[in-house]
Every structure is written in C-alpha cells, then in structure tokens.
Design a protein around this nucleic acid. Sequence first.
DNA 1: GGCGAATCGTCAACC
DNA 2: ACGATTCGCC
Length: 675
Amino acid sequence: MARFRLFDLNDEQRRAVTSTEGPLLILAGAGTGKTRVITARAAYLISQGVKPDQILAVTFTNKAANEMRERLAKMIEPAEAKLVTMSTFHALCVRILRANIDRLGYKHNFSIYDEGDQLGLIKKIITRTAAKDEKLDPNLAKNLISKAKNNGWSAPEDDQSLLSAVFARYQQELKTLNAVDFDDLLLLTVKLLNEHAEVRAKWQQRFHYLMVDEFQDTNGLQLELITLLAKNPDSENQTCNVCVVGDDDQSIYGWRGAQVSNILEFEHHFPNPTIVKLEQNYRSTNTILGTANNLIKNNPRRRAKNLWSEHDIGEKIRLIQMADDRVEAEFVSDDIQRRNFADGTPWESFAVLYRMNAQSRLLEANLRRLHIPYRLVGGKSFYDRREVKDLLAYASVLINPDDDVSLLRIINTPARGISDLTTERALELSSKTHTSLFKALQSPGFLENVTTRTKEAVRTFSELLDTYETRLLAPLADYAAVITALIEETGYLADLKRTCKTPDEGLSRETNVREMLAAMAQHQQRSNKGLRGFLDEVNLDQEQEEDDDKDDKQGVTLITLHAAKGLEFPHVYLVGLEEGLLPHDRSKVEGSVDEERRLLYVGITRAMKTLTLTHCRDRIKFGSVMPCHPSSFIKEFPEDKIELIDLAKLLSTPVAEETAKNRFAQLKAALNKAG
DNA sequence: GGCGAATCGTCAACC
DNA sequence: ACGATTCGCC
C-alpha cells in the first residue's frame, strides 16, 4: 500500500475519497482528477477494512475500466486490486445475464447483436410485416426501438402502427433466435433483478460499495440498475453506499438515451447525498479554461462550476478560416510537421478532433503524404470489416445455431448453392412455425418442397455445421483451431480473395482474417471463458485493440469529439467549426443544440497547452462542393483569448496581435448581425 | 438459379 | 465517394 497517500490530494478530492458512507455525488469538471479520485477512493475503502470484492466500479468504456484497474494496482496490493470489480455497464450485464437469463426464457448461450445485426433483423421483419403501400425506414425504426428500450418501454399494445408491429415482432424474434441486442443487455438485466428476488438479493449482497463513472451519461435503465444494486438486501428501502462521479457539462450522449437529469436531480434519486465539487483543473492553461467556461455558460440547466487552474495563461487560441476542407487538412498536417520540426514536439502530443468520422479521410491522406505517424481512433472498426464479420458469424452459428442473422450472413458465403429464394422460403417457414432458420432448413416439411440439388446443398451445409459444432463441444476443444479448420474446409479465403478487385485488397482482407484467428488463439491462451467469452469480448469492446506489443499506437491522434472525452493532449486541433457540422444540422431539428455546445466544450477542454480551431468556407459533401458558414458557437468565445489568423499571412509573415483582435471583432459583429 | 456490374441513396456521435 | 441494392447476363 506504499503508494497510496491521502495528502497527495487536494482538499476537495480528499473529501470525496474519504466520504465512504451513504450517497455521494462528485461533480468533477474536466481535468480535475476524476479517475484519480475514483481509484484513490477504492484504495481508501480497502485501507479502511472494506473487502475488495465488495467494491464495484462501473464505467462506460473498457478503456476507462482498464485504466482504473492499472492505476489501482499501483496504489495497493495488485492481488487485492484484482478482486475489485471494474467493469463497463454492458459487461456487468452480460455477466449477470449469462448466469441467470434462463429465468427470462432465454438460453445461457445467447448471442449479442450489434447494430448491424439489429438492422438486418429489422429489415427482414419490415419486409415481412409491411403492407404493399406501407414503408418504414429500417434505420429510423432501429433508432426508435432503441430509444424506447432505453426508456424502459416495451412495445405499446394498443398502437396499431407499423412501427409498433415491427417492435413487437422484433423483440419476439430475438427471443426465438436466442439473441439479445445492446439495449437488451440492460433491459433484461433490470427485468431479471426486478422480477426475481433471489437473483436480486444475490447481486445486492455481492457489492456493498458502488461507484459509477461518467454518471451524466447514464440512461434510465442504467440508473435503475444502479438503484437496484445499491439497495440493502436486508431492508430494501435503505440505500447503501453509492458514489457517482460526473460532469453535467460533458453530457454528450443524449442521443443514446442518456438523461442529464440523472445527475442534475441526483438528490431526488438518492436522498441526502454528500456533494463534492472538484473545480481545480490540472490539465489546461487558463486561456483554454476561460474559453471553455465562457462557452458553456450559455447553457441553461447546469450545475454551476468554476474551473480554475494554477497554470499560466498560456498561448492564445488560434482561429483560422480555410478555403475548403482540402486546405484545412493540408494546413493541419503541415503545421504539425512544422511544430515537430521546430522543437521536436513528439507526434503523440498532437490530436485532431472532428465531429464526424468522415472528416478523418483527408487528414489521413495528408498525414500519410508527409509520412507522419498517426492513429485513427474509432471509425470503421476492425470488427466492421466484411471478412471479420463473416468469421465471427461462422463462430457465432456454431455456438448458437438459432442465431439467424449470423446464419444468413454465411449461409451462402462462399456460394454453396443455397440461393436467396431457398433462404427466403426457409425464412417463411421459420416464421410460420416460430422456429429458427436453422431448424426450418432441416425440417422435412421444407426439404420435400425443394429441388434435389438444393436439398443436397442444404444437407451438406447442415452436416458441415453439425460436424464442427460437435468438435467445438468436445472437452478442451481448441476453438481457434476448429474455426481455422472450418474456414479452410469452406474455402473461404480463396473465395474472399477472388471477389477482391485488387491483389492489395485481397491481401489486406486475408491479413484481417488471420489476425482475427490469431486473436482467437491468443484469447484461448489467456482466458478460460471459451469461444463464447471471446465473442462477448469482441462484441462489447468496440475499441479495436491493435494488439499490444506493436508500438504502432503512437503518432498523431485522429479522433471524434465523442471518442475524445476523457482524454487529453498537449496540442489540439479542432477542425470543421462550421454551422451545420458543429452544431450539427440535425441537432437544431431535434432541439439538442445545448448538447452540441457541450460537445465543443469537451473538445476545448481536451487541450493542455495549445488549441487551434479551424472552419472552412467550402466543404465537399456527397462529392460536390457546399458553401459553409462559421459555427454560431464562435461568437460565444471570449474575444481576448482568441487570435484570428489569416492563413495566407501566416504562411508568409506572422500577424500582429492588434490586427488579429480587430479581425476577430469584425467577424463577431458580422456574426451577430447575421444570427 | 447464381454471378458480376451499374446505380442509387446516403454520412452524427458509441457501448 | 462509398457501400448496398438492382439489373442484366451466364
């Protein structure tokens, strides 16, 4: 316990760490040492005699959970640190469900459907359910269903709309397929705990001290889950020790169902809490903090905070207008190279933040042009690649043959003579008889109505799956080897390469398949959770672990504003500060401009030393040039902290400060007149 | 019935 | 500019 020292903390942090009993709300502004406080609090609890396995810390991302785990291991005995449960909401739910989901009529080997799988199922249901003149956008349906689930609703019974029918059908089919989607993980866990007192008691007894990170991002279900777990198993009207940490100003997941009200009305959910405000920022210059403060104070409905720092004023924030996104990306890359060249600032010190993933393309191209190493966070995940999904679908089908969505993906990949028409007929039968596709395919009622050739193809396919399923079920089965053999036997790789346009593409896709298989083998070495465990990890871990020891994690970071929350970088470029992009056009329709402002606030507060903001006059959208206007948020910045830079002059002579000030004032006046 | 090529509509953010 | 969908050919 050598490295855990209370006097390393400031007064407020110490108060947060040592308030152990009853509800505790820690309002932690950006960069105020939130993670440090949570881990120190866990260490403190243990030092006070709390058993480590009675502590639960819930986060939103695996990265956050891992970071806390690592930090805690440095503060206390690593063996004790291991006993503390540090988990994401979803992983915790999977754990609870895998143990007891049978009580809800699902089987323990249920599949987890990601968004793509969900969409596939919804599309299938819409075509089946909709009348000829009805239409429903599958994506819209998916979002509405998700929103409904996150608010704890089930399909409305009285409603006759197509959406309601699709919703009801969707939920029912998931159950037939023995599958759950991301929202179900929460929904079903809450249902399980609500409806089964003994399961509830089991988990309530398990944890006595709860901590929730990023509480401002929790939705209704997550709050309910916490409330359920936080109750004293012996007297349920007594709440035990729940500590939540968050910052309402950084609530940026409203679209995912997050309710800022959870943190704004914490006292209502957990009466008489201790409230601690962390306001000393250890990250940024006062120029950056002042700009962030000035921006965010335009939001109504927030818990007032006053971030301050012992750091210097630092450099002014640069605001630069670009001709178009091409020039913008070029400038950012050149500027990073120049600064690296000037004083050896390492590439890792730079990050480029943007609103949409699509914005990363030009940046990537330009960084590559200059041979600057970079890492792209988020975006099209490794797991979204066609070949990776195919491989996972094969694995998924072997574990849960009732998983129709995965089966559909691979039923004719590579082509094996099972046509769309055949599949369609089997699907019809499966929905008529309420069985899975796999069972329908094998049923005599189906087989007697198809041609001999099709019958043969289906039979061969069924046998293939059966054979490998048996191999997989064998005790101590080497599942990585089993899947590899299956891929071999189907001739998947050869077919994959054949369908690629260029040899390069073929090679890269093959590499992805091999990487996936290698990851599987690696998982087998370190875990005892089996192939199911591997798939769970893959499903719940959207961050692509570009496997460890490779040092290619270094370089300039390209990242969306959402994904950047919780991170910090010495030098930040925030690009595309345009009306329509940030705030995004859709936010105006949805009335969520406040959340866009918080998003920008999150972006600004990532910067430690310098911040560069850019916006374009033109931007290429859908292949053609669209004119752009500066973001309306720009006029909410404090004039004295911003330096307006003329790109043309920057490239030749530096701008005098007075000129810059005047320019900014002019721009502001113009904006005020317009808006 | 199965495959490759034009065409269409689409891009907000993530566990 | 890209991927899914639709069309036309084997």
